[in-house]
Computed example of a mutant assay.
Amino acid sequence: MSRPKKRRQICHAEVAARLRNQPDVWGEVGEYPGLKSAEDVVRRIRTARQAPMYQPAGSFEARIAGTELYTLVFARYVGHTAAVQVLDERPATPPATHIPSGRDCDRVLGQIARGEVQAGPEGARRIAARHQEAYGNAVWGPGPDPDAAWADALAGLSTGGAE
């Protein structure tokens, strides 16, 4: 069994200097084995937290692009005029040079954004109503009659529960 290929170390000081020399141009920061580590790098680039080479906070934008094997991080320098700290913003669409992702989560998030997937209680009610309309009682059967259920419970009590 062979050992996994060691990931190339990324020199963020060099990346930041290269991006500063080409303002507003997206450049590749590096490859990351997992989405979580890539999201952490994006957050550090945007906020300059624990990454002083990207200071001041907000002077760089960063994006994620997924592939089947790893996650790419892209960034660009937008200058000191855009130095606004962004903490909880979800990564926007990757730059046009990204490699299309084949991950299921990207596909599902796109479907939700386009309204093709309904989620939450309201979505469940709409789906159930659509199925009831299409299939009638063939799927779930008629709803329980609350009066009959109450009568059965009382009858069970009067007979001592024995049938």
Score class of each variant (00 low, 15 high):
21 N>Q: 08
1 M>P: 13
90 R>C: 11
65 A>H: 02
162 A>V: 15
85 Q>F: 09
161 G>Q: 08
29 V>N: 02
98 H>P: 11
91 P>M: 00
162 A>L: 15
14 E>P: 10
64 I>M: 05
29 V>E: 03
16 A>S: 05
13 A>P: 09
156 G>N: 02
98 H>E: 13
78 V>Y: 09
47 T>S: 02
105 C>Y: 14
122 E>Q: 09
145 D>T: 04
114 R>A: 15
79 G>D: 05
74 F>R: 00
36 K>N: 08
26 W>F: 04
104 D>C: 12
156 G>Q: 05
12 H>K: 01
59 S>R: 01
63 R>L: 04
108 V>W: 12
137 N>A: 07
68 E>H: 13
110 G>R: 06
131 H>N: 11
54 Y>T: 03
36 K>A: 09
67 T>N: 07
43 R>S: 07
160 G>T: 00
138 A>P: 10
22 Q>V: 11
131 H>M: 11
38 A>C: 03
114 R>C: 14
118 Q>E: 11
140 W>I: 11
29 V>I: 02
77 Y>W: 06
162 A>T: 15
142 P>Y: 06
40 D>K: 12
125 R>F: 15
54 Y>D: 04
88 D>K: 04
73 V>L: 01
19 L>C: 05
92 A>T: 06
9 Q>T: 14
53 M>N: 09
118 Q>S: 07
140 W>P: 12
110 G>W: 01
140 W>H: 12
155 A>M: 05
54 Y>R: 03
90 R>D: 14
59 S>H: 04
157 L>Y: 08
149 A>S: 11
87 L>N: 08
40 D>A: 12
156 G>D: 05
73 V>N: 00
144 P>V: 11
58 G>F: 00
44 R>F: 03
160 G>A: 01
88 D>M: 03
32 Y>K: 02
102 G>Q: 12
140 W>F: 14
80 H>G: 15
70 Y>C: 13
23 P>S: 02
42 V>C: 09
149 A>T: 12
95 P>K: 11
158 S>M: 12
1 M>A: 15
38 A>W: 03
47 T>N: 02
81 T>S: 15
27 G>F: 00
75 A>Y: 07
147 D>F: 10
24 D>C: 06
1 M>E: 13
49 R>F: 13
152 D>W: 06
42 V>W: 09
148 A>V: 09
12 H>P: 10
146 P>C: 08
134 A>M: 15
13 A>Q: 10
123 G>V: 00
161 G>C: 09
155 A>C: 00
114 R>I: 10
136 G>F: 02
69 L>A: 12
144 P>D: 12
48 A>H: 02
114 R>L: 13
53 M>Q: 13
69 L>W: 11
141 G>H: 04
74 F>W: 06
148 A>H: 09
76 R>W: 02
18 R>P: 05
116 E>P: 07
17 A>H: 01
46 R>Y: 03
55 Q>C: 05
162 A>S: 14
61 E>Y: 01
29 V>D: 06
94 P>M: 07
68 E>F: 11
25 V>S: 07
38 A>E: 03
96 A>P: 09
24 D>Y: 08
89 E>R: 10
138 A>M: 13
134 A>E: 15
112 I>V: 14
100 P>R: 08
6 K>W: 11
113 A>E: 00
91 P>Y: 00
133 E>V: 01
49 R>Y: 12
34 G>C: 11
21 N>I: 04
95 P>F: 09
47 T>A: 00
110 G>Q: 03
139 V>K: 06
98 H>V: 10
56 P>R: 07
70 Y>V: 12
27 G>Q: 01
